[in-house]
Nucleic acid binder design. Structure first.
Lengths: 210, 210
DNA sequence: GACTGTGAAGCCATTCACAGCT
DNA sequence: AGCTGTGAATGGCTTCACAGTC
């Protein structure tokens, strides 16, 4: 193992490997081969081995990988051995869906607060999470040292929300608004933009019926 | 322009260019350069030109691109000159968020029906869209010739939902469940998996504070 | 002079094929 | 014998740099 640039696609796959290993462990499987992991992910065995080899030697030649150990290693790599404090911007339908989504809790993410600018929403709770005025966002993030900000509002105000999060010294932003957002380099940012995938689908459907 | 393999990343960017061009047009801009498009997308001018050049010569040397014309061309490439019939599987929070999402209507996608297995939801409407029993899904998709199926249910049953959509001869599937789904090659499928991006963020936050 | 279109070069990720362990 | 770990080869996307056009 040496220091080298690791493809983002590798990190994405690590996250999926971990999920797959969880399932295996729940089914009582203790040993797994790169071949089997690959099958579970529609990937290739060489890819699996290469991805893991960036970070160490986790397997046993002639045998395979210990499911539980490998999962622990991957979680450590991804930074999932401790909890993460998240806050949500947007108390609309999407925000509500995210608060109620199982995936956050099961992976150690805790949405601590929601921020919105609609007076009738402020003071309420959604799925047990309090809704605050967006005017309090910067202070809250600073005070609570929230690390992850999730943007779930329409594109028109998404950049403003990002700016507030940055002002609060957030570490990372997950943006669900279908638009481009700019943040300073020290802030990690990824967009989940389903609209572009929808159009990738239509492109492929149109193109393949030649 | 010749027939060659076009990177998926190019299609993703085309979708974003189109959105950007919509904004420009709404602001009364008529001509745009690759440089300006690049700035709007945090990309490079060469990339913009290369992406567009896969499909034709849409610009004028020394001048730039006509905003409206280029947008029309891109929409044609993406198959957005006609409407798309979509159906949704899952009448939960996420499904509700998707039905109410502006992005579908503005890009020509119409969610015609929602399918769920909860008896108390069947017969209701959500955002004006009727909720049907999932038992009727296959027939409905065949009869209405729905082209796009959207999966918005927990991972445990996502593959079953995909199988039903495939049985109904759907053309494309957009999967929001955080799991791997397998479909036959003639069906286009993409997953919108925000959980992996969340973990890409944590990986980067952990790694960059060395 | 300005900006597009494009072959070539450079770079990065994936696949291959086999050496290395158990 | 079986499966991992890995340098080398391949393939593909992006960047470069300039020719082409207005």
């Amino acid at each position: 193992m040496k220091t080298q640039k690791i493809p983002e696609a590798t990190i994405v796959r690590l996250s999926m490997y971990s999920r797959f290993l969880n399932n295996l462990a729940n089914n009582g499987v203790t040993i797994v081969s790169s071949e089997e992991i690959a099958k579970g992910l529609n990937g290739s065995p060489a890819q699996v081995r290469k991805d893991l080899a960036y970070f160490g030697e986790f397997g046993t030649r002639g045998v395979g990988y210990n499911v539980r150990d490998l999962n622990e290693q991957i979680k450590k790599i991804l930074g999932l051995t401790h909890k993460w404090k998240a806050i949500l911007v947007g108390a609309g339908h999407l925000g509500t869906a995210l608060i109620n989504h199982k995936a956050f809790k099961t992976r150690g993410f805790e949405i601590q607060a929601v921020f919105d600018n609609a007076p009738q929403k402020i003071g309420q709770t959604i799925g047990g999470v309090p809704v605050y005025d967006v005017a309090e966002l910067v202070d809250y993030v600073k005070r609570e040292k929230a690390q992850i900000g999730i943007i779930a509002i329409p594109p028109a105000h998404a950049q403003e929300a990002a700016d507030l999060l940055v002002q609060g010294e957030i570490k990372a932003i997950l943006n669900f608004a279908p638009c481009v957002i700019t943040v300073p380099p020290q802030v990690e940012m990824r967009s989940v933009d389903f609209t572009v995938y929808l159009e990738v689908l239509t492109y492929n459907v149109e193109t393949n019926r030649k």
